[in-house]
């Protein structure tokens, strides 16, 4: 199995705080990798390393090697905007732009110049909404504001927005924590669909969600990766007592 993203001896400091300690992790292509662990364990920090969102945090320092298809993500020559086009992100709370549904999805392709004309842009917007499982619900009201949709629809709109620029990797930081069970199920179903075309890394506090959507699971604790393995193995027969203790609700 080929690794889409590799992390070797990755350390992250927020000022004095050592947030991520010597993390080695391979993220396989066209799989969903779930990052789990108690709050403050470093899973979101690791996620943000992959598209250099930590660059935006003052005092944050990243050391070690992170590669995407073998290319160093932290190489000085890397254009961060281009990197984030390859590595998209979906956040905890749906955060559509205060624009129309159409413009939310068209935004990325426009700034990256991905469409030659209006027809091509229409095509990208429709395909993205379709892939995000939202087209049927919004096709008659593309001019309405994205912020007027329900929470679950907003989140799928954000996913449509993320995939409109044809990324290779999609990072999801607790994408369902603000959604009801049905909206959650729709996003999970979508994640399962999306892994055919994208590599997905998801941070979640829901053990059941990690177990349902991912093929690989990495357990983080106090800034280190304690255990990584096939999701089935992690949730039925974890090898490390810390993993066992966390997923069975004994700490964290």
């Amino acid at each position: 199995m080929s690794a889409k993203i590799t992390a070797r001896d990755v350390n992250v400091f927020y000022g004095e705080k050592h947030a991520l300690k010597a993390v080695d992790l391979d993220i396989r292509a066209h799989e969903v990798t779930a990052l789990i662990g108690p709050s403050g364990c470093g899973k979101s920090t690791f996620l943000r390393c992959i598209n250099r969102m930590n660059d935006l945090i003052e005092g944050a320092r990243v050391a070690g090697a992170l590669t995407l298809d073998g290319d160093d993500i932290y190489d000085r020559g890397v254009d961060v905007v281009q990197l984030r086009a390859r590595v998209g992100m979906v956040f905890q709370k749906p955060n559509p732009f205060p624009k129309s549904i159409y413009d939310n999805v068209a935004y990325g392709p426009r700034i990256h110049g991905l469409a030659r004309d209006e027809a091509e842009l229409d095509e990208i917007v429709m395909t993205s909404l379709e892939k995000a499982g939202l087209l049927k619900e919004v096709k008659d009201r593309l001019d309405e504001r994205g912020t007027g949709l329900s929470g679950g629809q907003q989140q799928r709109l954000c996913i449509a927005r993320a995939i409109a620029v044809s990324p290779e990797v999609i990072l999801m930081d607790e994408p369902c924590s603000a959604l009801d069970p049905i909206a959650t199920a729709k996003v999970e179903e979508l994640i399962d669909e999306l892994k055919r075309n994208f590599t997905i890394v998801i941070v979640t506090h829901s053990m059941q969600q990690a177990a349902r959507v991912s093929q690989r699971t990495a357990f983080f604790h106090l800034g280190s990766v304690v255990e990584v393995g096939d999701t089935e193995q992690i949730f039925t027969n974890p090898q490390h007592t810390l993993t066992q203790g966390y997923i069975t609700g004994r700490f964290g």
């Binding site: 053990m207 039925t236 974890p238 993993t243 069975t248």
Partner: peptide
């Protein structure tokens, strides 16, 4: 409870 790991077993 939706048990996991050792509890599930």
């Amino acid at each position: 409870r939706q048990p996991m790991a050792g509890d599930l077993r």
